[in-house]
Design a binder for these strands. Structure first.
Lengths: 186, 186
DNA sequence: GTAAGTCAACCGGCCGGACGGTATAGCGGA
DNA sequence: TCCGCTATACCGTCCGGCCGGTTGACTTAC
């Protein structure tokens, strides 16, 4: 199920994410998470006093991972106009094809948390707000950066719900189209 | 809760959608749907033999409404290159601001159905596939039309999960940026 | 050095409640 | 009378949460 050795807390979180990914939100029960993490239900409840606490833990971890990952994408882009938007494109299209581990994790945590209580997504909302703030002063035409973010979010949603999946060729074409929006303010 | 007079079947579907919108997916129980539809649980089960049947009914209705609405948006656009993409923009941005009734309904049905069984979304997937097929032969630069669809889907997702909400001014800016992608193949 | 005490970590069984689904009886119009 | 529709009562299951108890490592006391 999940690597032993690592501390129980992260083993539980890993197991919970894996369950949602593999068997869906309804399958995420405290018993199942405990079992897959290799501990008893009581043991799980020692670390997370309620299901909500477990979900809060999942979200905190995800929000931090997303923020770190995104910041890394930004700093790896050359400075200048449209830096944040370029980072977002690189981030989204880099994650869309391969293991896209973070993408899958995000989808699972999103759905599980939202199902229990939409307010649990607040940490993620904060991350998105930060991204939007950075995009707003990116030096691009107003709206262009936000349009790029919407597009990457749309790709993410199509992935979450499995509505459609673009081939690599299609992805490249979409990216090429979005690159057009990167030209600085006219 | 829901208008009387109309036949029970649609009253039940309306009530189910309203419950999810108002109180979330977990609140959608057969009892609650029956009560809000002004009917007993047994009565509901006469019309929908199981919860899955109820969700299937919701999805069928939604898929048809979406297809009809989208086709209407297409035919109301002048013919020519990029017609489908223009329709999609008009559709999404027309629905993003006001009552956006269909948008809210879609969100509710999406979440409820996906939670029960992701395969239930197949009718919706068919609608999306039709849209993508229409976009692919829209006469635009390859990828531009799909990029527009991704952007509108992103707007939809931000709405579903309440991740962020654009002001009308921001929406107008985003649309202006996306309009740039409408220029015919270079 | 060892006995006593302490504390975090964990176990596993139990309970109350809710939900999906079934069974069966009742009602009103054609 | 028959049939479409509705109401009521009930069952089995499952899940979240709780609780008493256990282990083992580490400190302290003598």
């Amino acid at each position: 199920m999940v690597d032993s050795q690592t501390d129980s807390r992260t083993r539980i979180l890993d197991a919970a994410e894996a369950i949602v990914q593999a068997r869906g939100v309804p399958a995420l029960t405290l018993e199942a998470a405990a079992r897959d993490a290799g501990i008893s239900k009581g043991g799980l409840l020692y670390h997370f006093a309620s299901k909500e606490a477990l979900l809060t833990g999942l979200l905190g971890r995800l929000a931090e991972a997303m923020a770190v990952d995104f910041d890394k994408a930004v700093t790896s882009q050359p400075e200048g106009s449209g830096r944040t938007a370029r980072a977002m494109l690189a981030w989204a299209f880099g994650a869309a094809v391969p293991g896209c581990e973070l993408q899958d994790r995000a989808a699972a945590v999103f759905l599980a948390a939202f199902h229990h209580d939409p307010a649990l997504l607040d940490p993620i909302r904060a991350v998105f707000a930060r991204m939007r703030a950075a995009l707003a002063q990116d030096g691009l035409r107003p709206g262009a950066a936000q349009a790029i973010m919407c597009a990457t979010d749309g790709l993410f949603m199509s992935h979450v719900f499995g509505l459609y999946r673009l081939t690599e060729a299609e992805l490249a074409e979409v990216r090429e189209a979005l690159d057009m929006l990167l030209e600085p303010a006219r």
